[in-house]
């Protein structure tokens, strides 16, 4: 399992993968992607992650892998990266998205850090899950084959589409490995 390691909560994802009995690799160079069965795009700052992925040539390769069926799991900023369409904020900053998943996202749907929150939500196929939202984005629209896994208020906060899994929250900041196990299940198929 690779974790895109240009910026953000990389070591937390690696720890979760290890807890779920998978081998994780901190991916900083394009060449490291050749021996990967699945890829995690972690939380961090989406503007920085997008820029740094482009500059290290990870961007095109990840897009190609996601298109050709390699499982990709995006959390928070990773969800933004996976989306086909961003909001005005994403456009304003010229953030390049991978445009893999049939979703439209709102970059800071819940507000600033003081509005960041934790809530236990029902996730399809997982059950009640401790969801940690940090300046989190949300899915405002899912279309095509994308199916929603969890909602909060008017937003979709977890979704799956073929080989792609995305959450607006941070399972890597909890002790609960079920979201990572769900993803590892997708990688075995």
């Amino acid at each position: 399992m690779g974790v895109v390691g240009v910026q953000g909560a990389v070591s937390e994802h690696l720890e979760m993968l290890a807890k779920a009995n998978a081998e994780g690799v901190w991916v900083r160079k394009k060449e490291q992607l050749n021996s990967i069965d699945g890829l995690v795009i972690p939380g961090g700052e989406s503007t920085a992650i997008s820029k740094l992925m482009s500059e290290s040539n990870l961007f095109e390769k990840v897009k190609e892998m996601g298109t050709s069926g390699t499982p990709v799991f995006g959390t928070c900023a990773g969800l933004i990266m996976l989306a086909k369409k961003g909001d005005a904020q994403v456009e304003k900053t010229g953030t390049r998205l991978l445009e893999l998943m049939d979703v439209e996202v709102n970059r800071n749907a819940f507000g600033r850090q003081r509005e960041s929150f934790e809530a236990e939500l029902e996730v399809d196929g997982v059950g009640k899950f401790p969801c940690v939202f940090i300046r989190a984005p949300a899915i405002t629209k899912a279309f095509g084959e994308c199916k929603q896994l969890a909602t909060y208020n008017k937003y979709i906060v977890a979704a799956q589409e073929r080989n792609l899994l995305a959450t607006a929250f941070h399972p890597e900041l909890t002790q609960d490995t079920r979201m990572h196990k769900l993803f590892l299940g997708m990688c075995k198929r």
Binding site: G5, V6, Q7, G8, A9, V10, S11, E12, G43, G44, E45, A48, C76, A77, Q113, S116, V132, I134, R135, H170, L173
Partner: peptide, 10 residues
């Protein structure tokens, strides 16, 4: 602490 973790590597 999670907010701070999102800044790592930056």
């Amino acid at each position: 602490e999670g907010f701070a973790k999102m800044q790592k590597g930056g």
